[in-house]
Amino acid sequence: MTQVIVNGLLLGSTYMLMALGITLIFAIMNVMNFAHGQMYVFGGFVTYYVFGQWHVPYPIALAASAVVVAAIGFLFERFLFRPVMRRSNREETTMLLAVGTALLLDSVALVVFGEKQRGVPDVVSGVWQFAGAYIPWRRVLVFFIAIALATGFLAFIQYTRPGRALRAIAQDRETAAAHGVDVSRYSALGFALGAMLAGLAGGLLVTTEAVNAGAGSFASIKAFTMIMIGGAGVVSGAIAGAFLLAFAEAIGYYLMPGSLPYLTILVGLIVFLLFRPQGLMGKRWG
């Protein structure tokens, strides 16, 4: 059972970064970023090249993933989402745009990075045996970096001026603007930050799970599942959703045979949403 708890914790920490990024963009922009998984893939490939191929130290490679994917997010917001949202306030317009950006990044990734799975050498090697559980050190490292990054992100949101501005926009865009918040500027920052979290998740997970050009859609689906559980647009909900999904997977695969774990998770999610469509910590819509 220790192994199950360890699996849930380690998995949850990495899911958390994905969920935080997507929920931040939703909160700020009211956009479901369907390209979030693809941004995660780009982050993975940046670390693959910088650390795995060019042998630059891992922290620099991780920073490069963050910067490159944040830049992609910034450019998307500045040149795609902002003009479209200025011209149309229909939600399906931005939804379609988000799907389009996902397909674009999918195709670009395939052309640029090729069809193969890519992996990097272990940043740290060895396995720690603890109370009957096998815990690879590289996963322990990823766990602590993910926790540190998430803590840093929460501190930024909670205690800095830009963080407060982002929270104000998330709560009420018009009121924030009326109080002097530069909504355009902070929306770009929010989108870039959300994308950066996806890039960091990619840069971290390429060390444990490798990456391939087609992994984006599945990553997006998992990220959506987490924020559906926790409540879209709520930071605490994203964290809760990430760990709940991770533990559901860890326990499900341990206790149930075959395809039952995911079937049970999805059926459970449907039933849960019937009673609480806004998720655990989300506000009731409408």
């Binding site: 380690l10 998995l11 490798a210 992994a215 695969y253 774990p261």
Partner: peptide, 11 residues
């Protein structure tokens, strides 16, 4: 789409 195989292999 699974990338973390620890849960399935742990059993």
């Amino acid at each position: 789409g699974t990338t973390d195989f620890n849960p399935v292999l742990s059993s």
